[in-house]
Structure formats: structure tokens, C-alpha cells
């Protein structure tokens, strides 16, 4: 590809590689540092006297007899029952992804196949909705949810997250469906299929790459949300992220910061695996919206 004349001069090459190394350190080092530190006691991870304590684990050594300890994990998972919130998170994520893909696929398909002017307006409305900070809507949910006793339970949060997800899902699936040639379902209609049958038998079998990518982003939105889950879930039903935020209030005072550190590392692991397995889909999903404009 790159011709000889475009090859980089050695000086520039070194500068670029140095820059990349610095950036990758900035991007990844905080996570590895926190992972490492989560197996120490608080006085090592937040060392006042000497920062190398965090590496050698001097206090951890003194307290537990070895350089690593699972005390933070034991504290958060067993003592504070963090596993409950992990289960809640996965329930919420599963149903959010399922529902938003089901209704989003139908909507995105319709938007990509209809040439009327209102599709443009629907997409623009979706864009405006996408721009709303979710927390501005939360004030509007509170009163009716309290009134009808819907506040605090998982199904309500799932539906709200699905709705907040829809604008983005619609845009993304719309652009994926536009890449599937119209002739495909039109020829099925010529053969006597209704629009829905054409969708069911011709489009569904070929749409999976786009749907999986969109699903990944729906998952991320549900998993990463803090504003909605912290406001709409009662204490027992909290998902991981608001629970970690709640730790900050209580454990800072009780000296159990390491519980929060262990919980944070636990919540990072699924995301780490996700990027490892689906890096290609995430990149293609990010770019799909951009290339279409």
C-alpha cells in the first residue's frame, strides 16, 4: 500500500511511536493500577508515607502475612452482598437489549424503506431526543411513578432505559438497513409476500451483523447508566453503578474504601471481556453512524 516515498523518516517514526506508547499508557495504566491495588489494604493503595508501598504491599504484608489480599472482594461481595446488584444489572441489561432491539429493528427497517417526508422528521425528532440529557427527563418520571407505585422496581427502569435507548438504536439500525439492498425485499413482495413477510423471511436472515452491533451499544448504555438507575431504583433493586456510588457515601466514612475499589474492578471485568470479544463490531458500530453522516 504505502509506497517507498511515503514511508516515514526515522525521526518522525520515533516521535509517533513514543506518542502512541504514552497514549496507551494513559488509556490502560489506570485500570491495571486499580486492579493491582484492589488486592492491597487501604493504607497501601492510598499511601501517605511512600507510594512504593502500593507496589510492595508493606502494610498488606504486615496485616495478612502476604503481599496480596482478597479482603476488599470479600467485603464487597460477601459482606455487602454486591452479587445481588450484579444480578440486577444483568437482568436490566438483558431485557433492555432484547426489547430495544425488537422494537428498534421494526422501526429502523420501516424508516429505511419508506420514502415519505415524515421519515425525515421522525429521524430529526429522534436526534433531538438523543441530545436530551436523560436526567432532565427523570424529574418528569418521579411524580407519576410515585403516584402509581411504579417507582423503585426493575421493570420500570428497563422500560425507561429502552425508551432513552430508542433514538440511538433507530439511527444506527436505519443506517444498517439502508445498506441492505431494497431489491431484496421488493422482489419478495413481487413474489406475493406482504411487507411483514418480506421482512420476516428475507431481511431477518441477513440483518444480524448490524443488529448485534446495535445490541452491543444498547448493552453498554444500560450497563453504564447512572443518572436513571440511581434515581429510579430503590435500595434493594440497585444495579451495580448506583450501588458503587452509594458505597462512596457510606464507606468513605467507615474506612472501607477498598470495598468500593474491589466493586469497581468487578464491574470493569465484563466491559473488558466485551471489548476483547467484540472489538471489530464496536469499531464498525461507531463508524457506521459517522460515515453515513
Amino acid at each position: 500500500m504505502a509506497s517507498r516515498a511515503q514511508r516515514l523518516p526515522p525521526g518522525l517514526r520515533i516521535v509517533l511511536i513514543g506518542f502512541i506508547i504514552i497514549w496507551l499508557l494513559m488509556a490502560a495504566f489506570p485500570f491495571f493500577w486499580t486492579l493491582w491495588g484492589s488486592f492491597k489494604v487501604e493504607l497501601d493503595f492510598f499511601s501517605i508515607s511512600n507510594w512504593t508501598n502500593a507496589l510492595t504491599g508493606e502494610r498488606t504484608q504486615a496485616e495478612y502475612g502476604r503481599a496480596f489480599t482478597g479482603a476488599g472482594y470479600h467485603g464487597s461481595w460477601v459482606q455487602e452482598e454486591f452479587w445481588r446488584h450484579v444480578i440486577n444489572t444483568f437482568i436490566v441489561c438483558f431485557f433492555v437489549v432484547l426489547t430495544s432491539l425488537t422494537i428498534g429493528t421494526l422501526g429502523g427497517y420501516a424508516l429505511s424503506r419508506s420514502g415519505y417526508r415524515y421519515t425525515f422528521w421522525l429521524l430529526i425528532t429522534a436526534l433531538i431526543f438523543r441530545a436530551m440529557p436523560p436526567i432532565t427527563l427523570v424529574a418528569g418520571y418521579m411524580l407519576p411513578f410515585f403516584e402509581w407505585n411504579l417507582w423503585g422496581i426493575l421493570p420500570t427502569t428497563i422500560i425507561v432505559l429502552v425508551a432513552i435507548n430508542q433514538p440511538f438504536t433507530l439511527w444506527m439500525l436505519h443506517s444498517f438497513f439502508q445498506n441492505i439492498p431494497k431489491e431484496l425485499d421488493e422482489s419478495a413482495k413481487v413474489d406475493g409476500c406482504t411487507q411483514f413477510q418480506a421482512f420476516r423471511h428475507v431481511i431477518i436472515p441477513v440483518m444480524w451483523p448490524g443488529v448485534i452491533t446495535t445490541g452491543l451499544f444498547s448493552f453498554l448504555l444500560a450497563y453504564n447508566d447512572f443518572a436513571v438507575t440511581t434515581m429510579l431504583l430503590s435500595e434493594n433493586n440497585r444495579t451495580m453503578v448506583p450501588e458503587i456510588a452509594a458505597y462512596l457515601g457510606t464507606t468513605y466514612t467507615e474506612g472501607n474504601v477498598m470495598f468500593a475499589v474491589a466493586a469497581v474492578v468487578s464491574a470493569t471485568v465484563p466491559l473488558f471481556l466485551l471489548v476483547m470479544l467484540f472489538q471489530r463490531q464496536i469499531v464498525s458500530g461507531l463508524t457506521a453512524g459517522a460515515v453515513k453522516g
Binding site: 422494537i103 428498534g104 421522525l122 411487507q195
Partner: peptide, 9 residues
């Protein structure tokens, strides 16, 4: 086709 998503939004 658009009804479920439009209702949610």
C-alpha cells in the same frame, strides 16, 4: 412497524 418504538419514545 413504527408503532412500538414511537409509543416508547
Amino acid at each position: 412497524f413504527i408503532l412500538p418504538t414511537a409509543t416508547a419514545m
